[in-house]
Design a protein around this nucleic acid. Sequence first.
DNA 1: AATGAAATAGACTGATCGGTCTACTTTTGA
DNA 2: TCAAAAGTAGACCGATCAGTCTATTTCATT
Lengths: 210, 210
Amino acid sequence: MTKEARTSTEEKLLLAARRLFCRAGIHATGITRILEEAGVARGSLYAHYGSKENLLKAVFDTEANMWFRWFDLYLPHLKCSPRERILALFDLLEEWFAKEDFFGCVFINAVAEHEKDSRWVKDIAGAYRDQIIDRLRSLVVESGAKDPDMLTQKLGLIIEGAIVTAMVTQNSQAAYIARLAAEDVLRCMECSPSQTKDVAPPTATAVESA
Amino acid sequence: MTKEARTSTEEKLLLAARRLFCRAGIHATGITRILEEAGVARGSLYAHYGSKENLLKAVFDTEANMWFRWFDLYLPHLKCSPRERILALFDLLEEWFAKEDFFGCVFINAVAEHEKDSRWVKDIAGAYRDQIIDRLRSLVVESGAKDPDMLTQKLGLIIEGAIVTAMVTQNSQAAYIARLAAEDVLRCMECSPSQTKDVAPPTATAVESA
DNA sequence: AATGAAATAGACTGATCGGTCTACTTTTGA
DNA sequence: TCAAAAGTAGACCGATCAGTCTATTTCATT
């Protein structure tokens, strides 16, 4: 509990774990590999975090903090319209995707590779997701959109699509495509009221066979 | 190599593996658990598939076939406009998400939990993704859109966003949100020519610190 | 009824995993 | 200066994993 070292052992572990969990998967990443990459002794990991699970939780925290910095520190300081603030989010995504150590969102990846039935991973990831979506909704409300909840859900879905597309294609251009799609959604929200009706499922009968 | 049993051992293994790989993750799913769920003996799995890796490849095939059935068998038979055919895709997604054993897309989940640096999982998943996107592009071209490539990318991104949102939230409503977003994107593609310019990254300087 | 292929149960192997523990070295602060 | 705190190296443990193998049973076809 010293003041704060330049690169503390805790931080070295956190950075290595974050990178490896995303790049190689969580289950596929052994403790030993994290220690090698962090240049830290085995005992230190367990002295600081106690378990691999706790280390993952700490990685969750740092990933969530990235989003919170975006919404709470960076975007509010932009001298532009609320609409442009929303779009600026996609430029942040593009920077993120372009990093050489971007390998997807640790929340999404963690949910993807863990038990889906009411497990702690889904609970934690879901809670952080709610907090992030709430901040997105605030941004949308500021823009004075007609149906802020619907718009928030559309934008959230586009953001998640961008993250996964960028992970799968390993191309930061996904953020650009997402930004254009977001512009489309925003434009339509300004013109039409809400059109949450007359969707009329067109006889979608399942096509099932082996 | 008999004709085709009602529920062959091969099929029982495939169904159990598909479900468990998606529900609990691939690495987290042991061979033994698959065998229990399939009600099949250990030796049979290795007689038919030889390895867990081959079993996963077979699961990839079945997942890809679902998409191919949609694009090649179901959608072409719909008596409606190309635009409505595109939107009908989202109704198929909603049916998929609503299934009690939907736990995400096995391709996305597999990429998420495996090594990202040029591994076989990414290659196979990427190849299938290209085939699926190609079929989506054909649908888009039929609709006579101005910029079919851009529209295809936007729709593909929205589809992936829907899949991930549905997995994380465990709510099939994601397909409905995605459909509405797709309608917005389609509407904007009809009105404006292509607007693939004047994006002007608005001073997005990274906000980086620990 | 006989035969051969297919499926079964389950013991077994070697490797790897997360986590513990001990002995030793380095750092740090009064 | 020196003692406590923090970090290191690495052996070690029990559990679990993918995969192998054997002995037995089921079952379809002749």
